[in-house]
Nucleic acid binder design. Structure first.
Lengths: 126, 126
DNA sequence: CGGACTACCTTGCGCCACAAGACAATGGGC
DNA sequence: GCCCATTGTCTTGTGGCGCAAGGTAGTCCG
């Protein structure tokens, strides 16, 4: 009725993605030029099943506007609408490097905090 | 003018915190009862310098309302206003366990994606 | 021509970290 | 007794962003 806390991890993942989804796209683009539809696939292949295109396209647009990536169109080999490929700019490379450092500076401490307390031997009740 | 992209990692960390800050608090509480002011300290000690109380108190209130934690008041030994200590409930323990799993299921793939591409000399295990 | 498929983009919504500041309780200085 | 510094809690307004759902456009096939 009023309000339910998330019972599944789905809601959590949405929040977790926040600050790191752009880096994932950047990193994926760094490998080779990519187009929009590809990202959801690549992320799922990497272990992150999710991320509707409604999250990805606006983000790509923002990053392009910010000068981190640039785009060019190419016809789809499988028929259909032409694809819009994205490529990293110099600024994008720099941002990716910074972002990776940020992520590690964040994930390390978090992991440590989360495993600090009696995680094992399930011996607690309190 | 219109809009600037974040130049520092500070903005990013704010976003990264979403989805994991509650788990950190839960984990910290699991160690022993804690009060509000303590959390920012403990997080900073753990490597996460930040997190103003404006983020923490509302989150604690939300979690208490959700039945994950319970509180009791105790006078401050150092003079001043009484402290409000929080303790884990059974549901809180369960949520913490689930959350830890969620975090690992997320951080793993993300780390892998971010290190997939030629980070520098690019000679690692893939 | 019409349907199906590929691909891109937009709108409205809700969540939540944050900055800034108000409020409450205690103890010490005078 | 009164005032204020200290300790600590809580509230309000703001903004960014992931998401669901829906809409548009280009290409191919029957």
């Amino acid at each position: 009725m009023t309000k339910e806390l998330p019972t599944t991890g789905d809601q959590r993942r949405s929040q977790l993605l926040r600050g790191v989804l752009d880096l994932c796209l950047l990193s994926l683009i760094a490998e080779r030029p990519r187009y929009g539809f590809e990202f959801a696939e690549a992320l799922a292949a990497g272990g992150l099943e999710l991320v509707s295109d409604g999250s990805i396209y606006p983000l790509l647009a923002r990053m392009e506007r910010a000068g981190l990536i640039s785009s060019y169109r190419a016809p789809s080999p499988s028929g259909g609408a032409p694809r819009k490929y994205y490529r990293l700019t110099g600024a994008g490379h720099a941002a990716l490097g910074r972002g990776r450092a940020d992520w590690q500076a964040f994930a390390g401490p978090v992991g440590r905090i989360l495993t600090t307390t009696t995680p094992s031997t399930g011996e607690n009740t309190a």
